[in-house]
């Protein structure tokens, strides 16, 4: 459609996990995170013509996703504020004046240093998985992250068990090497 290489058909396989991981560390709730990622893809689709190819496709999607997450917090915060006012004016008047700071959810609240580190770790791992050949990435995710049984995976992908272990072995070696370079 546009001159730059941008292909929405590959988005889900390529970026869905990365973006989802990015979101889940920021909004906690799986459902919401999914919706936000989905919205991001829609928004990306709409503004595909504006994509100049200056950044990578993923960076561009992440920048859209960031706006979506911020919007999400704006929305729930404004709802919270309204609810809080009612509570506040009916009783408990000694806390007056400080309700905003106290009650409005702070998105950075639980972001202690280890959480930040974990966020980055999750992204680093997904980054490394993203570099694998598609088949390896798929098998590794199913086996390790989703915890499917060996047999179930073999049936679904139509491969033998020893085949699966070879794929897993290659994937693990590659990911370990990649993480060694970028993380440890």
């Amino acid at each position: 459609m546009s001159g730059h290489e941008i292909n929405p058909n590959d988005w889900i396989t390529k970026y869905a996990d990365y973006l989802f991981n990015y979101t889940i560390t920021r909004v906690k709730d799986r459902e919401t995170a999914q919706d936000l990622v989905q919205d991001t893809f829609f928004a990306g689709l709409k503004s595909m013509k504006n994509f100049k190819g200056e950044a990578s496709e993923r960076t561009w999607l992440v920048s859209i996703l960031k706006r979506k997450i911020i919007d999400h917090y704006r929305k729930i915060n404004s709802k919270k504020g309204q609810a809080e006012i009612k509570v506040n004016f009916s009783h408990d008047s000694e806390n007056e004046g400080s309700w905003l700071e106290q009650r409005v959810a702070d998105p950075y609240d639980r972001t202690a240093e280890d959480t930040i580190e974990n966020t980055e770790l999750g992204l680093a791992i997904h980054n490394c998985i993203g570099k694998l050949p598609e088949k390896q990435a798929q098998v590794f995710k199913m086996k390790t992250l989703l915890g499917h049984e060996t047999e179930a995976i073999c049936n679904e992908l139509d491969i033998t068990a020893s085949n699966l272990w070879v794929i897993i072995h290659r994937a693990r070696t590659a990911i370990a090497a990649c993480l060694e370079k970028n993380w440890f």
């Binding site: 869905a16 974990n118 791992i125 989703l146």
Partner: peptide
């Protein structure tokens, strides 16, 4: 293994991905 099983790493289920894909 330890890293991957730490809570930080999340992944979409295949069914969830399919849903997204069809919507897209």
């Amino acid at each position: 293994t330890k890293l991957v099983h730490s809570e930080a790493v999340e992944c979409l289920k295949t069914s969830e991905k399919k849903k997204m894909k069809s919507a897209l």
